[in-house]
Design a protein around this nucleic acid. Structure first.
Length: 262
DNA sequence: ATGGTTGAAACTCAA
């Protein structure tokens, strides 16, 4: 069994205690991190390596930044999403691990937030999602198990928000963005959480503001999408919601999938 | 309700 998780940690230095505590508790084999908010040289590697993880980072100063942690060696490590060489934002990191049944490809993605509407940031979000879909099309041709895990900054459906009506003017819930999500799924990817439950109220993010956590005013924006070959090995998925109640929490919680691979 | 909170880094921006 291989357990793969994604977590937007909102600052790796601020979250180091929570990260090591969760790694010890959940013991994931592979972890995709987003919003490390650190340059590669300043990433606190030692406490994570001491827990038995290999570590690859793709950071930048101040914001964004992604990483992949793995108990197995990480091969073919590739930063950046193809399709725009002028894009300087550190939002994508791809790697491969070996299993007895062959390779598993994993990508850690931090999609643009896209707010406010009607400006450059929203256009960048839509362009980034189109680039991502082209990347998925390419990877699909390999016919290998892969996971596209990360903070998508997309609320796919009204039941993925406690108060969907409050998100109608937000980039995370725009029709164009939700359409791009459906186009991603139309390539043949499967939403891991929705393959175990169609319950409303499964959230991965609660804002720091206005008591959102206490009121359970959450949204589901962190997702793991599985290629058909990964979905064939699907053995479970979940959201580690309790982590949001810890001291100094991220505003996001980990989402994980288990695959029948060793 | 144009508030509310957090992180990184610089005295503001991004979320």
């Amino acid at each position: 069994m291989l357990k793969v998780a994604t977590w937007n940690i909102n600052g790796v230095k601020a979250r180091l205690d929570a990260l090591t505590a969760w790694l010890s508790e959940a013991s994931p084999d592979i972890v995709c991190l987003q919003e490390i908010k650190s340059v590669d040289e300043a990433f606190p590697r030692e406490p994570i390596e001491a827990l038995g993880y290999n570590l690859q980072t793709h950071g930048q100063k101040g914001f964004n930044g992604v990483a992949i942690l793995s108990k197995r060696p990480l091969e073919d490590v590739t930063p950046r999403l193809a399709g725009d060489d002028s894009d300087e934002q550190a939002r994508f990191l791809e790697a491969v691990v070996s299993t007895k049944s062959g390779v598993l490809r994993v990508a850690s993605a931090y999609m643009p937030n896209g707010n406010p509407l009607g400006g450059e940031k929203f256009a960048y979000k839509l362009a980034w999602m189109e680039r991502l879909r082209l990347w998925v099309d390419e990877r699909m041709e390999l016919e290998e198990p892969f996971l596209l895990a990360g903070d998508y900054n997309i609320i796919p459906e009204p039941e993925d928000a406690r108060h969907p009506e409050r998100w109608t003017d937000d980039a995370l819930f725009q029709p164009e963005v939700r359409r791009a999500w459906r186009e991603l799924l139309a390539t043949g990817l499967t939403d891991a959480i929705r393959s175990v439950s169609d319950d409303p109220g499964l959230y991965t993010f609660w804002d720091y503001q206005a008591g959102a956590w206490q009121k359970n005013n959450g949204i589901r924006i962190d997702h793991v999408l599985m290629s058909p070959e990964a979905a064939d090995r699907f053995a479970g998925a979940g959201i580690d919601k309790h982590v949001r109640a810890w001291e100094k929490p991220s505003d996001h919680v980990p989402v994980w999938v288990a695959l029948d691979l060793d």
